[in-house]
Design a protein around this nucleic acid. Structure first.
Lengths: 247, 247
DNA sequence: CACACTATTCGTGCGACGTACGAATAGCAT
DNA sequence: ATGCTATTCGTACGTCGCACGAATAGTGTG
């Protein structure tokens, strides 16, 4: 049984600086980020990161304990992007929260791997800054602190879930565009299922759309998804405002 | 360059049944599910699945093209659990949607790996059934079809995001309980950061809670998270009902 | 019942992964 | 110039998914 100790966060361990280290953790995180964005999360291997830096694989282990640490650094680097100019938080809690929400969604969608690897996330310095900004955004509500936490958490739930699904939708749409046979096969398979009679709702929709050649609903473009996100966000904020008696 | 073709779903490929196959895809999915639930998603390897079934590793590849297919089967098996008795959908769209939402959250939290491996999800038979149920739930709204899609999607966003974060919270809480030194180190590190003066909100909260020894906010128990989820859900449904002019 | 056909099972091997270990190299104080 | 040790890196191990082809066993035909 592997003991699996040492749960310390990477940020609590001092970064090598005594003599002349060739690299910093920030450089490692940047290289890993470039790789993830350009070639996908699977391309982020210790060997590839090291190659990107012109170093040998094992050199990285002088700066980090494990690949999990690297991912933690990547996650925190991402969170730096979600930070918002403080001026944007001057309005009411609602506008300020919406600004943060939109920015968060944008960043999560720009780095699709970040949500999938969220299990190994840790609470780093930028996470702390982001949390601070979220608290600042809702400070005008006058709510007690636990209620502020809850408000932030609920909005973040919606934002994360939307980003998760939006990334999925876009990936699917791209795959369908790349391989038209795929969507044809999926439709054929779906129609077969419809004929079992177990899907009255879907059957009705399919029958109604049989005349025209467009699928029901608008196409899953980035803009469509963004405006849908916006409507959901506003509805959520409406409901929260009413239920929490703010504004 | 690997051509990466054959995007067909596993369900469109016939399952071996000609002579006397020892297994079915369902058995493989079940074994994989057991492994994931009991030992974590990382324990789900082709070798372990095969061992669980008393077969050799490569035998699985007669039933499945790749491990991705296995994960797809697992995801779809999970979706079977989120199906709800049809009687539960007889009420108004709001209650029906809430029933599905609660059940979905419960299942996602019972299988924490499912959200992390969502990238490789495919649209299987149970996904179709789940979608059909969601459509049935909102059929009473009288909304046009695209608006129904949007309504479902927005609720699902919130549910998924909440499950994602709830799993994360519970994992963190469990880790903290297992290793008290960890939380001490985190607090010490956090306090150090506070002294930079860059965190007025967090500093104020920390100062206010310095008297008692409880952290601000309730403990992150399953029940606390569930009731927070419920409040967010009701707020969201409130807002959606108002914005979409239903009920 | 023997035999051929082929569906089904499985053993071997390959390249890639994370990383433990210890040797090699190079910066700095003396 | 020398010694100490911070820093770099090469080698090796175990594990992963899975390509390939050999071995096994069920079934229809004579």
């Amino acid at each position: 049984m592997a003991t699996e100790n040492d749960h310390r966060l990477i940020w609590s361990l001092p970064e090598p600086a005594d003599r002349k280290p060739r690299f910093t953790r920030a450089q490692i995180a940047d290289a890993a980020l470039r790789l993830a964005d350009q070639e996908g999360f699977d391309a982020v291997t210790m060997k590839r990161i090291a190659a990107e830096l012109g170093a040998a694989t094992m050199t990285l282990y002088y700066y980090v304990r494990s690949k999990t640490d690297v991912v933690a650094l990547m996650q925190d680097a991402i969170l730096a992007e979600v930070l918002v100019p403080d001026a944007d938080l001057r309005g009411g809690w609602r506008d300020a929260s919406a600004v943060i929400a939109r920015r968060t969604r944008g960043v999560l969608m720009a780095h699709p791997w970040s949500l999938a690897s969220l299990n190994e996330a840790q609470f780093g310095p930028n996470a702390m800054r982001h949390f601070e900004q979220s608290l600042a955004a809702v400070s005008g509500t006058g709510l007690p602190v636990p209620a502020r936490f809850e408000l932030i958490a609920i909005i973040d739930d919606y934002v994360s879930g939307n980003a998760l699904h939006a990334v999925e939708s876009l990936t699917r749409a791209r795959m369908a565009a790349a391989d038209p046979g795929l969507v044809a096969a999926a439709i054929e398979h779906g129609v077969t299922q419809l004929q079992t009679g177990d899907f009255p709702q879907l059957s009705a929709i399919y029958a109604a759309s049989a005349h025209d050649d467009d699928p029901p609903g608008p196409p899953m473009t980035e803009a469509t998804l963004a405006s849908q996100f916006e409507r959901g966000l506003q509805a959520l904020l409406d409901g929260l405002a009413a239920r929490m008696n703010i504004n």
